[in-house]
Design a protein around this nucleic acid. Structure first.
Lengths: 333, 333
DNA sequence: CTGAAAGCGCTTACAG
DNA sequence: CTGAAAGCGCTTACAG
């Protein structure tokens, strides 16, 4: 493998000129650039980026911390992050934490040992942010909540879930059930608040028996819906805190002989690909994943490069998507 | 930020001893190790891995090239790769190629510029393997075919698809349709071969009109199934080359008023999470994603570290999963 | 087991 | 615009 010295020798210039021709061509004469490029071609030179990064104490890579890469909504975010990071010359290190504090820690270490320049965390996180003890630490939170410390890019989950419940109330539903994610999860907290606020504002009493807890997976949606099916009087609509649980709920209700939306309306959250192909397709809330990923990358790079962020928090618009899983309650309700 | 020299000074040893205490403790006395560890704690020293990697000309990271991270089967593979890579001290750089030759090239560059030590490519690939011009290049192909050059880890797709068709033949089906992936894709080629061989061996003539082309996405499965629905005489069973297309096909057939499996049986491939929750759940083929990821990582690291692989090719067992989307054809067929 | 020293391949003030 | 030179923070033969 040839190095910068060989290129310099062949081109008849100094190594400094070769280095500058590659990294700061505006500081070099065209004649030198030509000589250098020719020599690079002849020697088939590839710069050793490990050396360059070491020298400039920058790894040009960022860590994406994700609790579970198989989650389709997270996959959308990751894709967006990867595209925009690459466009800006950064690589993406995948950090699938599997909800393990220890694994998370090992990825934070990557930044502290200079192997990564910063972190984007996808999961809304209530646990301590070891990361955040140091406000200088380049860290962006995607999908957090109002209370997430540090820079956070998200939609207004309270408002979105409230809009969903209001939509069902407007259709005429009175008994609206809720399948939540795990209690500690900030998405759960925000969306639950939206649910309660909507009911409250239309004078319907919050009833704990209409709430079932899941954990944002399909099978947990099945379980939660099974549980609701044991009520003496079923809700006429069920709001699910994500599409996966809604899909599980569809499955459960159908197994119990219920027709959707005739007997019971079901709603999701996230608008994953599959939500428009299940039976029936889901009424849901779409988060602007592509835009969220882009803003996260731009913000993180700004932090890394020492710039101050103009906005501490980005709250983006969501989109309300109506499909066939919802309808007015049938007569008698 | 403290560096190795400060630690050495505080510990009263040379920098060489500090370096060895961290990287090769077996070469250092316990007394020295203790002094070094104490000094590290006092100075809150974090080694600069960028320097270490540069010095040892190894990045300890590998690239995972994937055509589309949103594909749930690929997500399973990536998760497995990430877990096993991390366990061996390697980071995973995500390379979502979006089917762009140019993006792919830029990830191969990462290896040539020392920012990554090797590549695992998830996509079975027929295009030229620029990577593979050099047999020294640490490269592993996951999910390839018999013809994939280089080290390849996969199941026997011909055999698996043949088994699926034979299963339907055994149920009594005679007109078996096929929804394929894109023509060039090696999975498509292998699975098509399995389909043809099974028909041939039971004396059924291959009929092009029962074949519809998709591209491994849900919507393409909908389209392909819509197309098959225009036949004068429908097949009694449809084999789909992956679960997503099968899910799309379910949707289409139901929209056409067909009952599954009563009117038409549908089968998938891959056993993605959703395949057991759709309506009806899919009969499908499970690939051992966890094991495939592990072998890919182990093999790649062996290549990186200069070892020779004991097997050029790993062909793993698949699992045949029977669910409710298949049944014997109804009377009259 | 330990230390002094060379050097990995670049970048970047500095002086011209 | 260019070159000589110092140096980034480590690792690793080498000699003891």
């Amino acid at each position: 493998m040839s190095n910068i010295r060989e290129v310099a020798k062949l081109a008849g210039v100094s190594v400094a000129t070769v280095s500058r021709a590659l990294s700061h061509p505006e500081k070099v004469s065209q004649a030198s650039i030509d000589k250098v490029m020719k020599a690079i071609e002849q020697t088939n030179y590839k710069p050793n980026m490990l050396a360059r990064n070491f020298r400039s104490t920058r790894s040009y890579s960022i860590v994406v911390l994700v609790p579970e890469i198989s989650n389709p909504f997270f996959a959308l975010l990751i894709r967006s992050i990867e595209i925009h990071a690459q466009a800006k010359g950064y690589s993406v290190l995948l950090g699938d934490t599997q909800d393990s504090q220890e694994r998370e820690k090992s990825y934070i270490d990557l930044v502290e040992t200079h192997l990564a320049d910063g972190i984007i965390q996808l999961r809304p996180h209530t646990a301590e942010y070891p990361v955040h003890a140091n406000p200088q630490f380049p860290y962006i939170n995607l999908c957090g909540t109002e209370d997430t410390p540090g820079k956070c890019i998200r939609i207004d989950n309270v408002k979105a879930c409230k809009a969903m419940v209001n939509y069902l109330l407007d259709l005429g539903h009175k008994r609206i059930g809720l399948i939540t994610g795990l209690k500690g999860n900030p998405h759960t907290i925000d969306r639950l608040r939206g649910y309660r606020e909507a009911l409250e504002e239309s004078g319907i009493k919050f009833d704990q028996k209409y709430i079932a807890e899941g954990e944002y997976t399909i099978w947990s949606g099945v379980n939660a819906a099974d549980q609701l099916c044991e009520l003496d009087e079923l809700p006429t609509a069920i709001v699910c805190m994500n599409d996966e649980m809604a899909i599980g709920a569809l499955q459960s209700f159908k197994a119990h002989g219920l027709r959707i939306p005739d007997d019971i309306s079901v709603t999701g959250f996230d608008n994953i690909d599959y939500s428009s192909y299940c039976d029936p397709p889901l009424t849901t809330i779409a988060q602007p994943a592509e835009e969220m990923g882009k803003i996260a990358v731009d913000s993180l790079i700004k932090l890394i490069e020492g710039g101050a962020l103009t906005h501490e928090e980005h709250v983006l618009d969501y989109e309300f998507i109506t499909r066939k899983s919802t309808a007015a309650p049938s007569n008698g309700d």
